[in-house]
Computed example of a mutant assay.
Amino acid sequence: MSTQTAITGARIFDGEHWHEGQALLVNGGTIAAIMAPSDLPPGMETVDAGGLLLVPGFIDLQVNGGGGVMLNDRRDVEGIRAICAAHAKFGTTALLPTLITDTFDIRAETIAAGRQAKMEAVPGFLGLHLEGPHLSVARKGAHDPALIRPMDQADLEALLACAGIFDAMMITVAPENTTVDQVRTLAEASFIVSIGHTDAGYGTVSAYAKAGARTVTHLFNAMSPLGHREPGVVGAALDIGSLHAGLIVDGFHVDPISMGVALRAKRGPGRIFIVTDAMSPIGSDQTSFRLNGREIYRKDGRLTLADGTLAGADIDMLSSVRSAHQTLGLPLEEALRMASAYPADAVGIAARKGRLLQGLDADFVLLTEELEMASTWIGGKRVFQA
């Protein structure tokens, strides 16, 4: 591919508006312009999209695995590469491979693998999401309670040692096992601190948000609910404008009615964005896999422990967008923003990703009118063709 390439013949959604009869001009790995085809430089390479939809690439901030690989089990650059490649087939152009609660040493190995993935510029790799181990046992979900523990000074120092390395670095914590001062320290070091797996009340979440927590992990799941006398984490996530919140839209984790209520209730500027919470079966034919020595079963779109506890999700980002649009009844534009612009805003990378604007990374997806995959492009390069 030449340095400059134009994608022609598509309906282009830049994250806010549709552009009809225009071309997307890519210069190297960034977007140069959306312009009339007649104004394109003569002789440049063009790709005819043939009436497809051209939309911003999806950004997934919670991805435990894919392509038959779990990050907990494959803590190396090839494991990260396999996960990123698996999700690129479903339109994800940037993601945070997510480590589920594990040991201190395994976390260290994962961070080292992330450093290597960053050095090698693995397509789609944005950084890491450490979901635990500093969570609440009472709201553990599928996390191994034997591995959950308070954050100590050694943990904090290990985390601070990798501050600023990645484009985004997220950590999910519960107030039961972290302090306000620890959260403030991490936030000041550019970590995206997310509140999750916790029974905390509204007042506690508010204090942690004031200390720098920016997001809430998988809204409604593994957290204190919205009550009539105690708003809980759900109430805090919806009411506190500075907080963004991830949402799993597979229809199993949260009822569509509850999702709709939350979307209508959310106070801004923080937004609700889509996450998959995907596990290793995405992009594979796996029917089961193991997590922390326990068997996880895949059946009828659900992933569960033997006792029926949900253990991550069996959904990809494109299916999530379809669900938000078709099941929740959201306008397509809003469903697309929930998968691109809003997660970019949540982790502070909107100056680079999440929209198709001049100077931003040329990460985009070509879809059919029926919202089926055609191709995925990362940094101006086609990484998947259906």
Rank of each mutant, 00 (worst) to 15 (best):
I315R: 00
R302M: 09
N292T: 10
A362Q: 04
R271I: 10
L303Y: 02
T368E: 13
A306L: 13
L318W: 02
L356R: 02
D345W: 09
R298W: 08
A344I: 04
P281G: 10
V365C: 10
E334D: 14
S319Y: 02
G348L: 09
A313N: 07
V383W: 06
G301H: 10
A339Y: 00
H325T: 09
E295K: 10
A278W: 01
W377A: 03
G308I: 02
G354E: 07
F364C: 13
L310E: 00
A311R: 00
R294I: 06
V275I: 15
E369S: 15
Q286I: 10
A374L: 12
G283P: 06
L305H: 04
A324Q: 01
T327R: 12
R352C: 11
E370H: 15
R302E: 09
A313T: 05
A324P: 03
L357A: 13
I315M: 09
W377Q: 02
L367C: 11
D361F: 07
L360N: 11
E333Y: 08
R352I: 08
A346V: 09
A344T: 07
F289M: 04
M279W: 06
G301W: 06
S320G: 10
G308K: 04
R271D: 14
A346R: 02
T276S: 14
S288T: 12
L291I: 13
A344P: 05
H325L: 08
F289A: 04
T287P: 09
